[in-house]
């Protein structure tokens, strides 16, 4: 029962934070609030005993991505651009999609319902079989690295590709920096950091 009310409190906190993210104009405040949003979401995951997910959410959502947003903010104005145009179509679309999602939420199984489809498929096998077979207490790690190693490989490749893509877009060169040096062309990274110090 306590867990339920803690969840109600945290989720209403999420709603309040979202409201302020929409209302505020200062971009730094918005970035800070989105970090707070992730931290609150992590607290919800802890409350639901999904510690691994909470850990990731706290480290990535409220830690690294806030820092990256702040680093990107250096090249942006401090205030959000002012826009007053009101579009009736967008509002109608938002309300329709929102109502559809709320309607769909009613047909979801209850939290912790043992008869939920997610708990009937392969989960019982993982929970029963993994400890006697592998002697590893954390089932999440078992599933991630062993049962579904190929999926995790895909995830790592996605992280790798996304990182390479963004770095090439922003710096214009990664591995080719050595060749640029030999041609005496300006290297963007070096210049920018000199300017900073």
């Amino acid at each position: 029962m306590v867990e339920f009310w803690v969840n109600v409190f945290l989720i209403s906190l999420l709603v309040v934070i979202t409201f302020y993210i929409i209302r505020l104009k200062s971009l730094i405040a918005i970035v800070a609030l989105s970090g707070a949003y992730s931290l609150t979401a992590a607290a919800i995951f802890v409350n639901m005993d999904a510690v691994d997910v909470a850990f990731t959410e706290a480290a990535v959502g409220s830690g690294i991505s806030t820092i990256l947003f702040l680093a990107a903010l250096r090249y942006l104005p401090l205030e959000e651009a002012h826009h007053t145009r009101f579009s009736g179509w967008s509002l109608t679309l938002c309300i329709i999609v929102g109502l559809m999602l709320i309607n769909a939420a009613f047909s979801l199984p209850d939290f912790g319902d043992p008869g939920a489809p997610a708990h009937l498929h392969v989960a019982p096998r993982y929970i029963e079989e993994s400890y006697p077979l592998f002697h590893i207490p954390n089932v999440v790690t078992n599933v991630l690295a062993s049962y579904r190693g190929f999926d995790t490989l895909g995830e790592v490749v996605v992280v790798f590709t996304a990182g390479i893509g963004v770095i090439i877009l922003l710096t214009g060169s990664t591995l080719s920096m050595r060749f640029r040096k030999s041609e005496n062309l300006p290297v963007q990274n070096k210049e920018a950091s000199k300017k900073e110090t």
Binding site: L68, A71, T152, G163, V166, I167, A192, E196
Partner: peptide, 20 residues
């Protein structure tokens, strides 16, 4: 996994803060 994620996060930070 750890090596890739560490390097991507640090590389992204380098790219963002060294971007001109």
């Amino acid at each position: 996994v750890g090596l890739t994620v560490f390097a991507v996060m640090l590389g992204l930070f380098y790219a963002f803060s060294g971007f001109k």
